[in-house]
Amino acid sequence: MFGDNLFLALVAPKTGAHALFLHVKKLNIGYGRNYGQNNEDTGRAMVRTIAEKRGVERRIAMTDIINVTNVSFRYEDNGPNRLSDMNLTIKQGEWLAVAGHNGSGKSTLAKLLNGLLIPDAGAIEIGPFQTSRENDLWEIRRRVGMVFQNPDNQFVGTTVKDDVAFGLENNGVPREEMIRRIEESLSRVQMLGYEDQEPHQLSGGQKQRIAIAGVLAQKPSVIILDEATSMLDPRGRKEVLKTIQELNKQDGITVLSITHDLEEAIQSDRMIVMKQGRIVQSGPPREVFQHPELLRDAGLELPFALSIQEKLKEAGYELNVPTLTQTELVEALWNYRQSK
């Protein structure tokens, strides 16, 4: 194989060299564990800064980090498609929220994105890698980190530092480098000083932040949170959300957050709503919330402020701006009153 490429390189210099290059690249990934020192290639250089409505400086690059093309997936051979002909592109640095009722296929999508499941049709690309290529799988799992719902059931290590190290150990990172990265990522999630704590001594929110640290230590490009805050108390939820926000804004890590909590979805750059394995709505959260009837049709519960607004409308009081948070609702009510 190698010899063939060399031969080609002699006969047809251009294509042969290219094939050889590809081959070497593959070797690099397939053998020996490549532990991700070279992820600076992911297009952070090409970042474009967008000043958003909220006035927050956000960094969303032009490059696509995830490409889902015509993907269908089913669990059983003759079963129904749990994802049907899905198309989705996520940009580097973007925060995408995924909403949808139970069983709409959100977790299935998440598992497809880091190669825990392989699509039956279509392709999923993470940068230059494809989940259906076995050799790419490990690099994809390093780049696309996942945080699951139950804080206890994803804590593998006997102590905090063992748990953060787990992914690094899997990827064959040398010990000295491991120690450095553990410290670095624990400080990113504000958990320095907890290295030797055992999981049963930590709160749910702390455990989820350790899970995030475990992902961060791998220097990922994308973090997927599959209802990662749904089992937490309000305080834990806030801590985790704050951590995620910082990672997204400061480090430009792409976030895909699956959530039932529409108030959480409001903070995203873009939101998709899923129903029966299909994307039924997509756009900036504020646009998606303009159509409450569609959200309800997808089986979602409206945010408190929005449902109040709807009720007011039924009663004949129409506020002309959609209100998503309580503060906005109060503001709108105030303006409404003044305009009368």
């Binding site: 598992k111 880091n114 825990l116 799992r141 980190g145 059931n153 593998v156 992914g167 899997n170």
Partner: peptide, 8 residues
Amino acid sequence: LAMEARGY
């Protein structure tokens, strides 16, 4: 699942 997702 979590172990696999972390590259085990």
